[in-house]
Write a protein that binds this DNA or RNA. Structure first.
Length: 687
DNA sequence: GAGCACTGC
């Protein structure tokens, strides 16, 4: 094809032919469904090495399993361990970075075991659990197991912990691996050294780390040279093309490549990886524009955008097959790289770009996040290409040169090196551990540690000697960022827990309450005006939440959706916020905090609570009309999406800073300066 | 006067 070098089949994509495993056909004709499932299990690549694998895990405290896509390791290894009796009386936990993976894997394995989910095979993720006394195999999110540590520091219910997708190196996976190493040391002491007490009764812990190829040695070294076992996968060959020259305008290059495929290549759907929503919307428009003018004899095109913030009804489109004679073109962020698998993809176009969030730590603790477009890593590039070979032979067009590929980083920097550590630090202090002294695969940055310590001190969670306070222990009970947890704990004192929980729930939901599609911005802001509160965005959010709750109480789901659409509100965010709110109310009840306590229409107590949590996110108006951070050197602007944009008030607090064209404060409320000055911690001498 | 990678408790 034009612009691309001769096809390459570099070693990074395994071109081994995928062997078709024989399916017994229609189960209703060929006998019980379970026979069919068992035949499939036996046909998996991993099944051939089953006995050797069990023996390997039996012999070693720690095993590293490297499995390619489609090897079946995630579903089979737990069952092998259970069948072989290796787990003894304890449970087998398998951790996943994502909730959807944990729940769907549990369903699959339950089917294979011919039990219903929640019996022998279960799962546990936030807001959703299916397990019972019978449960022996449990799929959990890594965050869930980290939280379980707080109540059971030795994870004594589990005899095997399998850490899956360990190569993704999420902050929670890293925390877990560090803790598992320590727990194993404590639990696997020789019996004469254990002495008396509860530790002596504990069964030993087995650890299985499952990872992609690149990082296996690193995991092995961390566990003192643990053995690495390789499991073959199943993948059709993917032919990879690189461009001959670099493509500065990757959007234009993606368009050109798509049309080349569409005009010259046989049927098959196309997946284009783009960095973000903005590019996706742009390409979407252009393809539709050109499609209208393209020759009649060409197949028609169905364009499907795909990114996390897209309403789920539109996300569902990518799973419906294109009608006969149509070619589907999916425009996706890296949500399609790991989180979801889209059927029918034959061609992948890889721009080689992604967006990466990075926390810029500051000694003052007032850091901020940046979100910048950058080059992907080699492991991402391989993953993207692999998406073309799930169901048959595929093709991947990389919009960068082979030299550019060689120059890419091997894999992404682990999260522990680039995220705020405040939340993890608080959790670890609850376990009497010190983030600075722990044995991590990659040590966190000193500046990030300093910022986290400072933040926890200013929130009152740590005292001046870095000891955990009663307040800190209370804060850690809440599944919230420490600054929001601080506001909740403060609400006990100010009698406005009902209001604070509503606000905090929206803030910690995974999406934003207000939709912001560029074409309808004017209409949206007009309709939203009725929610507006003069003090700013936090009370405005409370008004939204209150209105939604009234609707939710009287309307069915469709009515709620309808209402939200008319108000330009994101129903997914508000529904999730309600779920979070209910969970937080439960936590409050357990802690004897009366969540019914309300301040009615008086916003003053609410703002005072928020100031306690957002004390590092405060800025004062300067004589020249700009806002300067109270702690930290920056001049900040109020984000144009805020209801306080263009307003001049003496002092503001804000949820977050985002650095784009300026340093913008988002989620802003006006507060009297006196509220900030009266925060107790600021009045201790020498701080 | 502007921009939203992806997760998790």
């Amino acid at each position: 094809m034009k612009g691309f070098a001769t096809p390459l089949q570099p070693a990074d994509i395994d071109p081994r032919k995928r062997r078709r495993f024989s399916t017994p056909g229609n189960p209703s004709l060929n006998g019980p469904q379970s026979q069919c499932i068992q035949a499939q299990r036996a046909g998996l690549p991993i099944a051939m090495g089953k006995d050797a694998l069990i023996e390997e895990i039996r012999k070693n405290d720690v095993s590293i399993l490297v499995g390619e896509t489609g090897s079946g390791k995630t579903t089979q290894v737990p069952q092998y361990l259970l069948d072989s009796g290796l787990a003894g009386q304890g449970m087998i936990a398998i951790t996943q970075p994502r909730k959807v993976a944990a729940t769907s894997l549990a369903a699959r394995v339950a089917t294979e075991q011919n039990v219903s989910v929640g019996a022998l095979v279960g799962y546990s993720v936030r807001f959703d659990e299916a397990s019972s006394d019978e449960t022996r195999i449990k799929y959990v999110t890594d965050g869930m197991l980290v939280r379980e540590l707080l109540g059971d520091p030795l994870l004594s219910r589990y005899s095997v912990v399998i850490v899956d997708e360990a190569h993704e190196r999420t902050l929670r996976t890293d925390l877990l691996i560090t803790n598992l190493k320590d727990i194993q040391r404590k639990r696997n002491l020789p019996s004469d050294a254990k002495g008396k007490g509860s530790v002596a009764k504990l069964n030993p812990l087995k650890i299985v780390i499952m990872s992609a190829t690149l990082d296996a040695d690193k995991f092995s070294n961390f566990f003192g040279g643990a053995r690495v076992t390789y499991i073959q996968g199943r993948q059709y060959p993917v032919t990879i093309y690189h461009t001959t020259v670099s493509q500065p305008d990757y959007v234009e290059a993606a368009m050109r490549t798509f049309w080349q495929i569409h005009m010259d290549q046989p049927p098959g759907d196309v997946l284009i990886f783009l960095p973000g929503q903005e590019d996706i919307e742009g390409v979407d428009r252009s393809i539709k524009l050109f499609a209208d003018r393209s020759p009649r004899e060409l197949p028609s095109i169905v364009v499907c955008p795909m990114y996390a913030a897209l309403p789920s009804s539109q996300q569902a489109k990518i799973f419906t097959p294109a009608p006969p004679g149509f070619r589907k073109c999916i425009l996706a962020t890296n949500i399609a790289e790991t989180s979801i698998t889209i059927p029918g993809i034959k061609y992948v176009i890889d721009t080689g770009k992604c967006k990466e969030k990075r926390y810029v730590a500051r000694d003052s603790g007032t850091g901020f996040d940046t979100l910048l477009t950058r080059d992907i890593t080699k492991s991402s590039a391989m993953q993207r290409a692999g998406r073309a070979g799930r169901e048959g032979e595929g093709f991947c067009f990389r919009l960068y040169t082979e030299e550019a590929f060689d120059a890419m980083r091997e894999s992404a920097e682990p999260e522990i090196r680039r995220c705020s550590l405040t939340s993890s630090m608080l959790q670890l202090r609850c376990l009497d551990q010190d983030l600075e002294e722990l044995d991590f695969m990659d040590k966190p940055d000193q500046e990030a540690i300093g910022a986290a310590l400072k933040t926890l001190y200013l929130l009152g969670a740590l005292d001046r000697k870095r000891n955990l306070t009663k307040l800190g222990r209370d804060m850690a009970m809440f599944p919230l960022e420490p600054n929001l947890a601080r506001a909740v704990v403060a609400s006990r004192e100010f009698g406005c827990t009902l209001e604070i929980l509503d606000i905090v729930s929206v803030l910690s939901a995974s999406s934003k309450p207000f939709f912001d599609s560029s074409d309808e911005r004017e209409a949206a802001s007009e309709i939203r005006r009725k929610f507006r509160h003069r003090s700013g965005d936090h009370m405005t959010m409370l008004n939204v939440m209150r209105s939604y709750q009234e609707i939710a109480a009287s309307e069915k789901k469709s009515g709620r959706k309808d209402w939200c659409r008319k108000q330009f509100l994101n129903e997914r965010c508000l529904a999730e916020a309600q779920e979070i709110r209910d969970q937080l109310r439960e936590v409050c009840s357990r802690m004897q905090i009366d969540w019914h306590a309300s301040c009615g229409e008086d916003e003053q107590p609410v703002l005072k609570c928020l100031v306690r949590g957002l004390v590092q996110h405060a800025a004062y108006l300067q004589p020249d009309g700009s806002y300067k951070q109270l702690m930290g050197p920056s001049i900040v602007k109020i984000h144009p999406s805020s209801s306080l944009c263009d307003k001049k008030v003496a002092a503001i607090i804000y949820d977050e800073l985002v650095y784009t064209t300026h340093i913008y404060a988002r989620g802003v409320s006006a507060v009297p300066r006196g509220y900030i000055a009266e925060v107790p911690i600021l009045n201790i001498k020498g701080t």
